[in-house]
Simulated assay, not measured.
Amino acid sequence: MSGSRLAVWGDPIAHSKSPALHAAAYSVLGLDWEYERRQVSAADFPGVLDSLDRSWRGLSLTMPLKEAAFRATASRDRHADLTGAVNTLLLGSELSGFNTDVGGIIDALGEAGVTDVRSVRILGAGATAASALVAVAELGATDVDVRARRPERAAGLVELGGRLQVSVTRDALSAPSTPVDLTIATLPSGTALDTDLAERLASDGGVLFDAAYAPWPSALASVWGNGPVVSGLGMLLHQAVRQIRIFRHGDPAVELPDEPHVLAAMRAAL
């Protein structure tokens, strides 16, 4: 693991804040590493990955590459295995895959004072929803209500809930609901729900964690009333910290030297 080149790949990717976050961290850490962004489609991913030489240290992956990255890895951490998604690749003699989104959600919620939940509603049924489910299971959730435009897409989340010993139900976005401690929205950026539906979800939705952050406030956050709202920028920040731990130490749990200073510099770069 001697390379010094890193990048974030995805499609689209021009909006990514990752280069600024990583550059700020590397400056504090005194690391002479290069971190760039590159637009890579799911179809092109295997070939582009195979073209990398020994100068490369690692990759950050965003949509739609997390599942393809999972398939490419020889070894994976527990969060990646549970979710079937890899957002961090450590390059070397073999490809090691990690999912730092789970930890990023936990850290962002903890920073907002949410450290223990029992009932949760997840809006959406994609890769981020799977990370959200694992995160809330680790925060103590016992009941999770998944809402999606196409509830059949949530079948994998029901199965994952069984593995996590969490009761997971799935339903349409507009189905009647009961109060929950926390709502996690994993809908695509720019999604605007019908106002009546959004207000109904807000009325019994507890704390809102919206993975979207551009534009902010999101349409859902704008109608959440007086309930606490947590932006997805916290997840972006904290998952990046865990990525840098991996690139530096090979382990997302090993803290960086002077990590509070690193975190402050990254937060200022957002």
Rank of each mutant, 00 (worst) to 15 (best):
M1S: 15
L6T: 15
L6F: 11
W9H: 07
P12S: 07
I13F: 01
A14R: 14
A14H: 13
A14L: 10
L21W: 15
A23C: 04
A25Q: 05
Y26A: 10
Y26V: 08
S27H: 12
E34D: 15
Y35C: 09
R38M: 15
Q39K: 11
Q39R: 15
Q39V: 14
A43F: 01
P46V: 11
L49D: 11
L52M: 09
R54K: 00
R57I: 04
L61A: 06
T62Y: 12
M63I: 09
E67S: 12
E67W: 00
A69N: 07
R71T: 12
A72F: 11
A74K: 12
S75Q: 15
D81N: 12
G84V: 06
A85C: 14
N87I: 14
T88G: 06
L95V: 13
S96Y: 01
G97K: 13
F98L: 03
F98H: 03
N99L: 07
N99K: 11
T100Q: 05
D101N: 15
G103D: 08
G104T: 02
D107G: 01
L109V: 04
L109E: 05
A112C: 07
V114Q: 05
S119M: 06
S119N: 13
A125M: 06
A125I: 11
A125L: 10
A129G: 07
A129V: 05
A130C: 05
A132D: 10
A132C: 10
L139R: 00
G140P: 08
T142A: 03
V146L: 03
V146A: 03
R149W: 07
R150N: 06
R150W: 01
P151W: 09
E152H: 13
E152V: 11
R153C: 05
A154T: 13
A155Q: 15
L157Q: 05
V158Y: 01
E159N: 10
G161R: 08
G161V: 13
G162A: 08
L164W: 07
S167C: 01
V168T: 08
V168I: 10
R170Q: 13
A172N: 03
A172R: 14
P176M: 04
S177E: 06
S177C: 03
D181A: 03
I184K: 01
I184Q: 01
A185E: 03
S189G: 12
G190T: 08
A192D: 00
A192K: 10
A192H: 13
T195E: 11
L197N: 01
A198V: 13
L201Q: 02
A202L: 07
A202V: 08
S203F: 08
D204M: 01
D204F: 03
V207H: 01
Y213K: 00
Y213A: 08
Y213H: 01
A214M: 14
P215G: 01
S218N: 09
S218T: 15
G225V: 11
G227K: 10
P228H: 06
V229L: 09
S231E: 04
S231D: 03
G232P: 14
L236C: 08
H238Y: 12
Q239K: 12
I244H: 07
F247W: 15
H249K: 03
D251K: 07
L256G: 10
D258F: 02
D258L: 02
P260V: 02
V262P: 04
A265I: 09
R267Y: 02
A268G: 00
